[in-house]
């Protein structure tokens, strides 16, 4: 079955990103196809490369990147939500005249249309938020 997952909250403050991760991982392990994990609202903060959690805690950002690498998972952060909250890929940074970018590995930034398109193609859409 084809799933699309929407994550509306950032890491650590809310449990939503943790639950979304465990759900996505379980779906992939069961052989389902996850078309896309889309990050919206504060969910785009899951895509920061600058998160440095203490060693005795989980690394939420890296965990998403690793899962994406393992399953060729498409992780997409909404561009409008991301720019507003200071998450930029190198192209966005250049366009806005900024010298640094901070998008974590295996994430990409794109428009909300990517969520709608994935929702149209999926058999199920599951939302995680607060």
């Amino acid at each position: 079955m084809k799933f699309t997952v929407l994550v509306n909250e950032g890491p650590y403050t809310h449990q939503a990103s943790d639950t979304a991760f465990h759900f996505t991982k379980a779906a992939l392990e069961k052989g389902h196809h996850v078309l896309r994990v889309f990050f919206y609202h504060d969910g785009v903060l899951n895509a920061t490369a600058l998160s440095v959690p203490p060693r005795d805690d989980r690394d939420v950002v890296k965990r998403w990147s690793t899962l994406a690498q393992q399953y060729q998972l498409d992780l997409v952060a909404c561009i409008a939500a991301a720019e507003r909250r200071g998450i930029l890929d190198s192209e966005d940074a250049k366009r806005h005249g900024l010298e640094m970018d901070n998008l974590a590995p295996r994430f990409r930034i794109s428009g909300l249309g990517q969520l709608v398109e994935a929702a149209i193609q999926a058999d199920r859409v599951v939302v995680f938020g607060d």
Binding site: H41, L112, V116
Partner: peptide, 19 residues
């Protein structure tokens, strides 16, 4: 909170997909 504003943006984009 920002949810209402960004949900409205989502509604407008969704409408553009002719659904």
């Amino acid at each position: 909170t920002i949810y209402a504003f960004e949900s409205l943006e989502m509604a407008l984009i969704t409408a553009a997909f002719d659904q």
